[in-house]
Amino acid sequence: MGCVSSSPGRSRRAPGYEDPAVLASQTSFTVNEVEALYELYKKLSYSIFKDGLIHKEEFQLALFRTSKGPSLFADRVFDLFDLKRNGVIEFGEFVRSLSIFHPKAPESDKAAFAFKLYDLRGTGYIEKEELRELVVALLDESDLCLSDSAVEEIVDNTFSQADSNGDDRIDPKEWEEFVKKNPASLRNMSLPYLQDITTAFPSFVMHSEVDD
C-alpha cells in the first residue's frame, strides 16, 4: 500500500507560485536567490497547515520559534505581506515584500513600508495615538520599562521633530523628511541576511535551472 508524503516536494509547486525570472526582474533578488527563497517559502508554508501557503500562525511560529500570543507588530507585518488581503502570504507576495528588506532596496520603498506599518488605522497618517500605541506594544513585548510620562515625552519629542506643520499627525511627506534626517528609524527595514541568500543559506539552495 502506498502512502502520500506530506512533505513539500521539488516537483510540487505551491499555489500562487510565480516564475522566479519574473520575480527577479521585479525585485532586488537574482533568479537563484528567488529559487532559494522558494525553498524557504516551502519550509514555512508546510510547517503547520501543509497547504503551501503561509498562514499567520506559520509566520509567527517562524518569527518566534514558539507559538506565542498575538503580537501587534507580527500581525502588522503579516498583513502588509498579504498584499491580496486573503489571509495567507503567497510566494510572489513573500518575495516582493521581502525585497523591500533587501539592504540594496531603495530607501523610499523602506520608508513607504514602514509608514504603512505604523499607520495602524490606515488613515494615511501616523497619528500621535498610534505612535503611543506602538511604543506601548514594544514595551509589552520587551524587557524595557518606561514610565507613562517617559513614553509621553518620547512621543512628544518625536512629534516635535517629525510633525513639521503641527497638526498632530505625520503625513507621508513629513515622514520622508523625518527618515532622511533620522535614518536609524528605518534600521529594522534592512535584513543583512538578504544580501546574499545563496551563500548565507546554502541549505535552501537547490540546483538552479538557470545561471544568474
Binding site: 507588530f73 505612535l131 533620522n182 534600521r187 541576511y193
Partner: peptide, 29 residues
C-alpha cells in the same frame, strides 16, 4: 526605569527594537 540611551531615542528607533519586527527569525533553521 529605562536607561538613558532609551530616553534619547526617538519613538521610531524605540519601536524598531521590537523583536517581532526582526524578520531574521524567518531564516533561522
Amino acid at each position: 526605569p529605562g536607561d538613558k540611551s532609551t530616553h534619547q531615542m526617538n519613538a521610531f528607533q524605540l519601536i524598531g527594537m521590537a523583536s517581532s519586527l526582526d524578520l531574521s527569525g524567518l531564516f533561522e533553521e
